[in-house]
């Protein structure tokens, strides 16, 4: 990880309030790993802190982040122009653990992304190319479902749940997940990776009590200060006390937390 000035390669509006930001940095493209994040400085006097955004994918030397406009910081980013410069520290944090995969090629990998939580999962799916991957995507309505096509292009099988039923399963993503898990041929090597609202992650941990063989790693969020493990501002409560999302995470085994 290091701090550098990075040029904006592209900025595309994907949905009403969802943007895809491409960054030109050979260093980031080379060193980024799924589950890690970039700590981006917002060049605006009233906004002091950097904004942590997870790495969405790396393609042809360009590192992408996918973000939703939530507040002033992300609004600022959504107004960037191609060619402008951003001060970025990254890649930061402990990403998803992929160590096991060599031994378990034949088993299914399950990715669960709620809303904008899908962001780090596409990068993960890129690493799983050629594997049997099930992707669960959840959103309020059809218009808000993200990256479905991207996952399909990588050969993943995609299941969608929308709250209003306008696409796929009608209801909560976790309900769909529960239904599909009952028919999957899981094994002790079945791995799940999740990212999304904390309520969704809690729900997943409850579902997995019935499937103790499935190991689940989840990416957590917290309001963040330094991003490099110094200030202890971004902790979440785990079974072993407070842990820093920026340095001990953002990826934790779901059993560490719930």
């Amino acid at each position: 990880m290091k701090k550098e000035e990075v040029k904006v390669y592209s900025l595309d509006r994907i949905k009403k309030d969802i943007f895809l930001l491409g960054l030109k940095s050979p260093y980031l493209a080379k060193n980024s790993f799924p589950g890690q994040f970039l700590h981006i400085k917002i060049d605006k006097q009233s906004l002091v802190l950097r904004r942590p955004l997870s790495i969405h994918k790396v393609e042809k030397g360009i590192t992408y982040v996918l973000f939703k406009v939530r507040g002033e910081g992300t609004r600022f980013l959504s107004g960037l122009r191609k060619g402008s410069t951003l001060n970025i520290i990254g890649p930061l944090g402990k990403g998803f653990d992929l160590q096991f995969t060599v031994y378990s090629l034949q088993f299914t990998v399950i990715l669960v992304g709620g809303g904008i939580g899908v962001a780090p999962l596409l990068f993960l799916a890129q690493k799983f190319r050629g594997r049997k991957v099930w992707v669960f995507l959840g959103a309020k309505s059809k218009e808000e479902v993200l990256c479905k096509k991207d996952f399909q292009e990588l050969g993943c099988q995609v299941f969608v749940a929308t709250e209003d039923g306008s696409l796929g399963f009608k209801g909560k993503l976790t309900s769909l997940l529960k239904e599909k898990l009952s028919i999957i041929n899981y094994s002790p090597s079945t791995k799940m990776y999740a990212c999304g609202p904390v309520d969704m992650l809690l729900e997943i941990s409850k579902i997995l009590r019935e499937y103790p063989q499935i190991d689940c790693q989840a990416s957590f969020e917290q309001f963040m200060g330094c991003g490099i493990g110094v200030c202890r501002g971004c902790v979440i409560k785990t079974k072993q006390g407070f842990k820093r999302v920026c340095k001990d995470g953002p990826v934790f085994n779901i059993k560490e937390v719930f």
């Binding site: 009233s46 906004l47 963040m224 200060g225 200030c231 202890r232 979440i236």
Partner: peptide, 23 residues
């Protein structure tokens, strides 16, 4: 000391509010 419960950090106009709690 374990420190204070999260969230521990918030941003305001040109400022940061923290409540780490001497962890």
């Amino acid at each position: 000391r374990g420190g204070n419960p999260p969230p521990r950090i918030a941003e305001t106009s040109s400022g940061v509010i923290n409540s780490i709690g001497l962890e």
